[in-house]
Design a protein around this nucleic acid. Structure first.
Length: 905
DNA sequence: GGGGGAAGGACTC
DNA sequence: CCTAGGAGTCCTTCCCCC
């Protein structure tokens, strides 16, 4: 497979088929004489600028001596073992590849090459600007005494960067300060001053903007620019000015020599970038390096070529690119880190040219995505579109600290982080739906846990509630050993971005929150008589399950710390400040208890489009009507058919309620799996498309039956809501108001239609509850007529759980429950039903608000939700090529014969 | 088989 | 004497469910 570039149109052409011997190597670098006990990942990485000609052996020895015996060292050792194992597996696989397989794979890759080649775009001029040792340079500028001595920015624990004097000692970024000190005892370590760096960065960016208004900053010290358009302008300027003035700038003299019509493009490019760097220096007294190339990948590599204070321009021709790539070590390519480097090295691949030569093996051993990436690297392809269009996907805070093992302190730390994160979120006008906990044990084991919220939130209490549960589970898992941590982080993902200037619209969550705050006072008055009181005994709580008292989260303290606590979770007894929190908590509390069997679908994007949104509203209303009004099988079936004939998505395998009831009649004994806690919580208040689609009720324990689809039925709710408002004013009519006020005294204080509409809904519930609740609950709790399938791990027997047994499972009290929002008395003992009802009650407020807001506001709301580029592929992602590869991949992976047939040239 | 969530890992600065 | 970051993205794998 000895492939050499040719002069043909396609430079990457297979000339002959020859086997390349593959050296089997493990993680240790053959280039380095000293291996840190085989720990390639811990060896000095001399890839950075200013680190040529170092005594690697000595440096690695120092690193080894400073590291051995530490937890970090052990951890790295284990990590290296995993990498070595991966390499071994890969090599085994490689040795099993037949010649035929390789030949076929190579043919496929060659075909793919043709596809990729068509995508090659050499028309853009991309510049990568990289400030030289940025943080260190700023510090040296501000304190010239640091200029001539080895110095680094960071702490004894970790360095952010070092100056070029320090690099001569092997001191580099991402190295612990104490090791750096051993390498260079005279090293001065200056603490980070991000505020200052940000300021300087701003100045630099201002200059960059002149060259490309859409430039893409990657960090404080580097950015990509597409200067193609700017070059065009400059060219024209030069032509003009050359006639009038031949002294523009020193470096332009050379350009002008080329005369009026034939300005040398490369010279202009070089000149422009020099000018840019010069302006940066003038403004900041800091030097920058630049790489100029036809795509981002190459530009990035080029900027490293003449570091520091230099630039490198790669000609925009295929030949130049090819020549550049052939000798380029793979580890210089952004995206190929130490692990990939090791894997590739084991295959005998160290340069990009090797990557090309070994394309058959690469395509067979790596995932299609990776193979795609490697092929593009081998051909010198990269992204040519520089545009700043990325939207933040997640936000997190984390902190490394001295060992903490007391649960109380861990929870405190967790709370602290949650507060911090929430503050950040709020300051940036964002909410998020997926809360993640990150922990690193003192042994450097890293774990992440995450859980989806029902609502997007930026309230620290909501974040903490989940994070605490996740943390609690980890403490439980470690028990009886204490969970000893050195790092904790809290993350929130599936972000929803609030657009500045549209805040008057408010987020749903904020709206909920405000509304519930409004109700807070009312609730406070009622709470003493409420069933949610401390007399309810704490029951199942994952957080406190099987834990000795000392390990449990101290709810009592939490109550004392929080004088405003007004509510208490009837399930786990956790206090809540308000109904909003309580409601959210109930959701998760029940979810946690029913997991992992419970399947709560949550929209991954956290946004909905207009159609989905209105569907959700409708479904929500439908569901409510169904839940609270359904009295018979007939009605239910009717509702189901209405549902399916509506524009809502029709679920597959839909069976009617009564169909299923028949099936269920024949199966009175639940399956073994049903012994697991399998509570069905109807999906709740999230305005996600899954609300419509989700399985409201699980089929377990009736595994053999067709899935029971309890669909949002009629759009009565919607109609009802609409009928309450006159079309022009959007206000409820007098009759409705009177009706409501008769039912709900406090509705007289209502100030707007939204509140009134809310009350209308409460009123509706109130009406229904007396004569419908009872019969409906009977219906859904009776085994012969299950509208809600509720399995339980009943401790008593294997009978279908009765309402009582289910309630007991969930720690329900035997007294009747009441909704803290509308104060309805429940005859059912089901917390799930109650929870669902609370959701409904709270949702109504929001739904009414949306319906009552005028169309432009509504449009704005929807627009805001949909205009963000959540689904947009990341700029790093492969675009057209990706599709091409997928296409080819179908030949590759699934139909190996077919490719032979279709592959002609 | 594909979509989606959770977990882990690699990589970047 | 001790001491190995923080924030973010993307990809892969596993599992569940439809």
């Amino acid at each position: 497979m000895n492939i050499t570039p040719t002069e043909s149109k396609n430079s990457f052409v297979v000339k002959s088929q020859e086997e390349i011997p593959i050296k089997l190597e493990t993680g240790s670098a053959p280039s380095s004489n000293v291996k840190i006990a085989g720990l390639k990942t811990m060896e000095i990485n001399d890839g950075k600028a200013g680190m040529d000609g170092l005594d690697k052996e000595y440096i690695n020895q120092v690193i080894f001596n400073a590291s051995k015996g530490t937890s970090f060292f052990d951890h790295q050792q284990k990590r290296q073992q995993r990498i070595d194992q991966k390499i071994q597996e890969m090599m085994t696989m490689c040795s099993q590849l037949t010649e035929a397989q390789k030949k076929t794979a190579e043919e496929k890759m060659d075909m793919f090459t043709l596809v990729l080649e068509k995508e090659r775009d050499l028309s853009r001029t991309i510049v990568h600007i990289d400030m030289d040792a940025f943080y260190a340079a700023v510090e040296m500028r501000d304190d010239p005494s640091l200029k001539e001595i080895p110095m680094a920015v960071g702490s004894l624990s970790m360095l952010s960067t070092s100056n070029y004097h320090a690099r001569k000692f092997g001191v580099r970024a991402a190295m612990p300060g104490f090791i750096a000190k051993k390498l260079c005892p005279n090293l001065i370590i200056v603490p980070c001053n991000f505020k200052k760096y940000t300021e300087v960065s701003k100045q630099v960016r201002e200059i960059m903007r002149d060259y490309d208004p859409d430039f893409l900053p990657m960090s404080l010290d580097e950015a990509y620019l597409d200067i193609t358009d700017f070059l065009q302008q400059r060219k024209q300027q030069l032509v003009k000015q050359n006639l009038a003035d031949d002294k523009i700038e020193d470096s332009t003299t050379e350009v002008l020599k080329y005369g009026h019509l034939e300005l040398d493009t490369n010279s202009i490019v070089e000149m422009v970038v020099k000018e840019l760097r010069h302006r940066i220096f003038q403004k900041t007294q800091l030097t920058a390096s630049a790489g100029i190339a036809p795509n981002m990948m190459l530009a990035k590599v080029c900027s490293d070529k003449n570091k520091p204070n230099g630039q490198f321009c790669l000609q925009s021709t295929k030949e130049a690119v090819k020549d550049f790539i052939t000798t380029l070590p793979v580890k210089k390519v952004p995206g190929i880190g130490p692990v990939q480097e090791q894997l590739l090295r084991a295959l005998g691949i160290t340069t990009c040219w090797d990557l090309w030569k070994q394309r058959a093996v690469v395509s067979l051993l790596f995932s299609p995505n990776s193979a795609n990436f490697y092929m593009r690297v081998a051909m010198g392809l990269g992204c040519t579109e520089v545009k700043n269009d990325s939207t933040r996907k997640s936000k997190s805070v984390e902190e490394t600290f001295g060992e903490i093992c007391e649960p109380k302190k861990l929870y405190n730390k967790c709370e602290e982080l949650c507060r911090e994160l929430a503050e950040d979120l709020q300051s940036e006008g964002m909410t998020g739906k997926v809360v993640g906990l990150k922990i690193k044990t003192v042994k450097f084991d890293l774990r992440t846990r995450s859980m989806s919220l029902q609502y997007p939130t930026s309230d620290w209490r909501n974040i903490f509630r989940v994070a605490k549960q996740l943390l609690s589970a980890e403490i439980t898992l470690a028990y009886p050993e204490p969970l000893k941590l050195r790092l904790m982080g809290v993350r929130i993902a599936n972000l929803i971005h609030e657009v500045p200037g549209e805040s008057q619209q408010g987020l749903m969550t904020d709206f909920f929150y405000q509304k519930n705050q409004e109700k807070h006072n009312i609730q406070n008055n009622k709470k003493q008589e409420s069933e949610f009181s401390t007399e309810i005994q704490p029951q199942l709580s994952l957080s406190n399950l099987n834990l000795p008292v000392s390990l449990q989260f101290d709810d009592h303290q939490s109550i004392q710390n929080n004088r405003n606590v007004s509510f208490c979770c009837p399930v786990c007894h956790q206090p809540s400040q308000d109904l909003y929190e309580l409601n959210g908590h109930l959701d998760e509390c029940l979810t946690l208890q029913s997991s992992p069997l419970m399947n709560v679908h949550v929209g991954s994007k956290g946004i909905v489009d207009k159609t989905e949104f209105s569907d959700c509203v409708r479904a929500k209303t439908d569901k409510k009507l169904h839940t609270w009004s359904s009295t018979s099988l007939e009605t239910f079936d009717e509702n189901c058919s209405t549902y399916s004939s509506n524009n809502l998505e029709t679920p597959k395998n839909k069976t009617t309620y009564s169909d299923n009831a028949d099936t269920l009649l024949n199966k009175s004994v639940p399956s073994e799996s049903s012994k697991k806690l399998n509570m069905v919580v109807t999906n709740r208040t999230s305005f996600s498309k899954h609300l419509v689609k989700s399985e409201l009720y699980r089929k377990e324990p009736f595994q053999n039956t067709t899935n029971v689809v309890v669909s949002p039925a009629v759009s009565k709710g919607m109609e009802y809501v609409r009928s309450m408002d006159t079309p022009n004013t959007g206000r409820p009519n007098t009759e409705s108001v009177n009706k409501i006020e008769a039912f709900i005294p406090w509705s007289k204080t209502a100030k707007n239609s939204a509140v009134l509409s809310d009350k209308i809904e409460c009123c509706e519930s109130l009406k229904n509850k007396t004569y419908e609740m009872e019969s409906f609950n009977k219906l859904r709790m009776t085994p012969n007529q299950p509208s809600v399938s509720m399995a339980s791990n009943s401790l008593h027997n294997e009978e279908f759980p009765t309402s009582n047994s289910v309630c007991q499972e969930f720690g329900c009290v035997t007294e009747s429950l009441s909704c803290p929002v509308c104060d309805i008395q429940f005859k059912s003992q089901s917390l799930v039903l109650l929870n669902e009802h609370i959701d409904n009650c709270l949702n109504k407020v929001a739904i009414k608000e949306i319906l009552s807001s005028d169309s432009s506001d509504y449009g704005k709301f929807v627009k805001r939700k949909t205009s963000r580029s959540y689904e947009k592929p990341s700029r790093k992602k492969i675009k057209t090529q990706d599709i091409a590869l997928r296409h080819i991949d179908e030949y590759f992976c699934k139909k190996p014969q077919k490719i032979k047939e279709s592959h002609c040239e």
